[in-house]
Design a protein around this nucleic acid. Sequence first.
RNA 1: GCCCGGGUGGUGGAAUGGUAGACACGGAGGCCUCAAAAGCCUUUGCUCGCAAGGGCGUGCGGGUUCGAGUCCCGCCCCGGGUACCA
Length: 813
Amino acid sequence: MKVGYDAPAIEKKWQRLWEDSETYQVSTDDPRPKAYVLCMYPYPSGPAHQGHVRNYTFGDVNVRFRTMNGMAVLSPLGFDSFGLPAENAAIKTGVHPRIFTDERIAELKGSLKRLGAAYDWRREIKSHDPSYIRWSQFLFIQLLNAGLAYQSEAPVNWCPGCKTVLANEQVLADGTCERSGDLVIRRNLRQWFLRITSYADELLDDLDQLDWPERVKTMQRNWIGRSVGAEIDLEVCGSEAGKITVFTTRPDTIYGMTFAVVAPEHPAILALASPERIDEVGAYIAEVATRSELDRVSGDGGFKKGVALGTFVVNPANGQKVPLYVAEYVLGHYGTGAVMGVPGEDERDFDFAGTHGIGVIETVSRPEGWPGGAYPGDGVKINSGFLDGMTVQRAKEAAITWLESSGFGRRTVKYRLRDWLVSRQRYWGCPIPIIHCEGCGAVPVPVEELPVLAPDDVEFLPTGESPLAKHIGFSEVTCPSCGGKARRETDTMDTFVDSSWYFLRFCDPFAEDKPFDMAAVGKWMPVDQYIGGVEHAILHLMYARFFTKALSDMGLVPKSLREPFSKLFTQGMIRLEGSKMSKSKGNLVTPQRYFDTVGADALRLFHFFVGPPSDDVDWTSQTDEMIEGCHRFLSRVFNLGFQIPVLDGADGIPENEAVLELMRLQDRVTNGIERWAYNTSVAALMEYTNALYRLVAAGADPYLLEHGYRTLLLMLAPFTPHLAAEVYEQRYGRDVHLERWPQVDRELLQAALVSLVVQVNGKMREVIEVDPKITEEEAIQTALALPKVASLVGEGGPRRVIAKLPKVVNLLV
RNA sequence: GCCCGGGUGGUGGAAUGGUAGACACGGAGGCCUCAAAAGCCUUUGCUCGCAAGGGCGUGCGGGUUCGAGUCCCGCCCCGGGUACCA
């Protein structure tokens, strides 16, 4: 009796067997060549969604394919289990974040197992696990000791009504508190920073050696934003402040300075204002402070707000006095918080000058037809004293040389990248292991006392304030250094800290006396293939790179390990009818319904087949039909087995065109995997199956059919692991996932006849099968022997022949 | 605004400068069936033609080339990132 393809039953059977399987468990002393394949560990939000399916099936095909190619593949997974949603749920429902999170993890893990993804679950990591918290805190202290962590004042969103800090998401678009409706203001709070900027140059330069999408590298380069220029000291007249320093990437334009501007946050701002203007300036600054940064930056377009300080600065190049302003278009946190105003060559300065009636001096000759306004491009210097006649590039150098020799300024490099603010006024995060003592300052908690764990007996109230700050038992402590009364740090770390080293812990998650074993990290790192969403292109990937470099310098990982992820692949997003699919929009199409009907293999196959893995997928009304199609294909594969008897040995296979056709398709499957074009691999697998059906119908050699079907099952193993395992076991009593990936016979392929296109005047007219070593003379003769070609070429023969053998001959008449 | 991607049948998409539309979805017709579902077969870019066969076709306009979806120049549209970073 013929049994149909019952995917859910087959899949559940194999998933039970895989629970105890050691196939994807590896150890540090594994003799096979290593491969570390890692998918970004997920935030546990409940059962898997299609985005997870896409991410983790792509990872899985990598793991299974490499394993079949004889490698020891490290394939771990864990959960990024700290974060705001669990805390918000606690406020709403009263359920403790740990209970909430553990439930979500169980759900997500369940659906990943249901998907059939292969992991070494012994290595599972959870960010909120005390054994992980301990080492996150340990690493924070190491960074502190290395001078890479420090405290500083930084602005936060402060709600005067709730008397607490708000996350950005809690501030509404109009700048009010989502809870109390009060106007949120920016207020400075003492917070912890990690000194990522000291690695700015290396983070920038090392991008060149990474095999990452160019797009991601570009985003990181822009984020770091390295700018080479000069600082120029300007003498201020009419105030006691003395001088200000401006930063510019265009020191060549110094003769075009017709004003100067300082940011409202400039520390010396009030000292810079003239006594008559000080009230107005103070009012302006106060007004700016009430507005959010977003509001300040958006909206105004060309109109640039600001007020004159009533004082002047001296242009060091020509001794002329120009007015000084405060304006919000100059940012306090970038450069020196002050700029020289050069309306001739800078668009923003041009707008400001126009608004405030300031003159313009052009210092670069304009190209013909330039419509007016600021000109930021190249050209010859004019109106610029000793710089006249130089190109912009040369003048920049000359200006810097002059600034340095005259003492008015110096060559400087500035970065857009800012230090990483890691303090979060939250409960559900990794506590920062610090004790504040009046006498001793910030003292790290002794390593043997780690981990510092947040107490469970806290109240989750909708105030927005961290429950830890109010917990006396937690916050009131004695100083580990002097034994005096002290206060525990109640802020927790940004969850990006947890994800900045989890890939290292995966190498050796069993270590109890250290975050990871040096030798294990040396064995497995760097990650050979990292897979995740492009939404992490900047923050996570930059922070993880920073951690790796810092830990390398601190000697915690091998000195030679400077980059964590050699290759990166970013898979496309899932959209629903054009918009982003997300839980908050309530428009998720869950995988579970497919698991229950067509099965995980069919859903996996759909994700491979729908298009290039890097492209977005639009989930439409037709998607279900395509998934049905994938299921139909798998049924065809399953049923084909009943028509092909199992035979021993493959000696009887004749060398004919059918063998070659199958081998070419086989080659395309492998090729698709290697170049991240799984959609073409699946297309080749479908053609392969169609070819076998045709061969069965044509009564082909049984040994050829047997060999072809066996090869098909082997090739399906990474894509649809359950189906392949089931049929392979039934036929051969062996585990398909322990078999070797099928190899093609290159010599046979290369010796086979190929298609030669015959063109006349560049138009395709005939296709003929020829020996790949055909000579030009033979090709022309064969082509001309074709009646159609002969009649098109006519009596005189071709005027000229272009031959790219063995692909094409083009006869020109 | 700037920086990346990308525009190919009704749809998803394929195509190292060399047969455009592989493979699939959907559609049409047929076989099987009392009927349906499932399955199988044929067909399916547009167009002229009874046919054989021809012409046109990869967002638009130019160019390079024997030959361009692919390379170059200039536009248009869509998606993403970033946003007063001096």
